[in-house]
Amino acid sequence: MADLIKVGMADYKVGRGPSKLISYGLGSCIGISLYDPQTKIGGLLHIMLPDSSQARASDNPAKFADTGIPLMLNDVISLGASRSRLVAKIAGGAQMFAFANATDIMRVGNRNADAAKQILRRNGIRVIAEDTGGNYGRTVQIDLDTGVYKVKTIDRGEKDI
């Protein structure tokens, strides 16, 4: 039985196949997976916010796209993954409640998705699949044996990206 490792909000985990990494109930948050298909090493990061420089000091770099991604990247590389082979998939970034006069903070999902892609690109990581936006929650799971990124919803079914 392969390990199923839980990743909480504002947290990340790394590992290798046949482990699976899962994060439950993402709304505006983003689940960012990294995967090296050759060594079957990868990671899953659950970020809440795009940018640590727009926030007060935090003890937790995994909360932000700009500080969390380099952190996870370092860890998967030191486990033995190759930066040039690593590919990323992202899911989440919903706006759960529709308000006519939605404030910036309510649209944080979009900004999270944009920031995640930009920071991955800046680090030389290709984003090969994405399932973002909408107004519904997602549970995401990366299978480190196959690299399949499973996105589950409550009434829009589940899909592999």
Partner: peptide
């Protein structure tokens, strides 16, 4: 109507900006 984590995100991101 959705997963509790996703719904709570709405209030938590705001706080997340200011602290842990």
């Amino acid at each position: 109507m959705d997963m509790a984590g996703a719904i709570l995100n709405v209030v938590l991101v705001q706080l997340g900006q200011m602290g842990d």
